[in-house]
Amino acid sequence: MAATTTPLGLFNTESLINTEDRTIRDTVRLFVERNIKPQIADWYEAGNLPVRELAKDLGQLGVLGMHLEGYGCAGTSATAYGLACLELEAGDSGIRSLVSVQGSLAMFAIYKHGSEEQKQEWLPRMAAGEAIGCFGLTEPDFGSNPAGMLTNARKDGEDWILNGTKMWITNGTVADVAVVWAQTEEGIRGFVVPAGTPGFTAPEIKKKLSLRASVTSELVLDDVRLPGDAILPNVSGLKGPLSCLNEARFGIVFGSVGAARECLETAITYAATREIFDRPLSGYQATQLKLADMTLELGKAMLLALHLGRMKDAGTLAPEQVSLGKLNNVREAIAIARESRTILGAAGVTGEYPIMRHANNLESVLTYEGTSEVHQLMIGKALTGLAAFR
């Protein structure tokens, strides 16, 4: 017998998505089906991603900085951006990371905190995928505690001199521009650093077991001299980089649902065609119990994502609410990936199916843009009024 519905169909989530957002989502889904899924297993196994070619394709698709207004950006709703992230991560977390870092970190930092000259110079090219950006905040010894960063910038006449090291930087090696955060005498400030500036290098990090279809780098700044107008003029302190992280976390709330959906749908398809003791695996109670439980968590994650998307569109979304979404949805996506793998048995660990790749990627997604523990503490602070980060 044919299945009567899909996991998200049971929740009728389509009724919660307006026509414009659905059209954008479907366009991105078709792009992923045609351009990402046929090649992603090979890219992942090779530990290589054709970033420059993909960036131009993604620019033509209109997803780079799609939720920003002007400067060649599409100006879509936040919900549409989230749904695009969902479809991109259904392909691979590395593809969604490329788009998130470009649009929600590097471009958003310039868009929100930069000068008009900086916006005009970089945003149109970045929206088109002609220039690639990265975002330098995390350091080797300062991840969850960015306030302790050692990277520093000092004035030298009208110029700035930057020194320091950043770590785990998506797109760094291939970037044309980096937004780098550094300690100054007036607090933490952001700087727009063209990649060709003397003293700036970005060696790629190799031998990863997760996010292999993504360029991950170190940034090294050795007496990098920048003109005075390289500083982001409209923000100081940690609120600058944290505002950008909140944008990227929002994309993860949706993106993780895409990875989970892909794993669960793969498991359902496999179970229907795999025969065990002369009957389909999907006909056994143990299998259906697993599928039912995973469907519950996927549907709840999708409902939460859509609710947060509407709140963001209304301008009412608070950072601790984004933490709710990131914490829950990534946690449940990993659980769904692992459970889906058990349905495929040994086949689930091969590159023929996407499940183990998604499971490995989600381990990185669990950590970046705030670890689960950090988001738990953000929620705890909201509930108690007390900061327990130390």
Results as ranks from 00 to 15, higher is better:
I231A: 00
Q376C: 15
G133E: 03
K326C: 04
L137W: 00
Q285S: 02
L264I: 03
F135T: 00
E20C: 15
S217T: 02
G62H: 06
Q118T: 14
E117L: 06
R331P: 04
A337G: 01
G114E: 11
G187P: 05
S243I: 01
A80R: 02
L232P: 13
D57A: 04
A84F: 09
A195E: 06
L306N: 08
P7E: 12
K37H: 11
G315P: 12
D223K: 12
P50R: 10
L30D: 13
E69P: 05
S372K: 07
R125N: 06
I231W: 01
M66Y: 10
Q39F: 15
I17K: 09
I268Q: 03
R189P: 02
P7D: 09
M378T: 04
T342L: 14
G143W: 11
W168F: 14
M107H: 04
S364F: 05
I17C: 13
D21L: 09
P7T: 14
E33R: 14
G190C: 10
S364W: 03
L242Y: 14
S115G: 04
S282N: 03
T27R: 15
R338L: 14
G370L: 03
A388H: 14
E204V: 06
K155S: 08
G136I: 00
A286N: 10
E297D: 11
T138D: 01
E332S: 09
S256E: 02
W122G: 01
V180R: 07
P38Q: 15
G75K: 05
T27L: 13
K155L: 11
A387Q: 13
M126T: 08
L137T: 12
T165S: 00
R279W: 08
L83N: 09
R390W: 07
A301T: 00
A128I: 07
E332R: 06
F277L: 12
T197M: 10
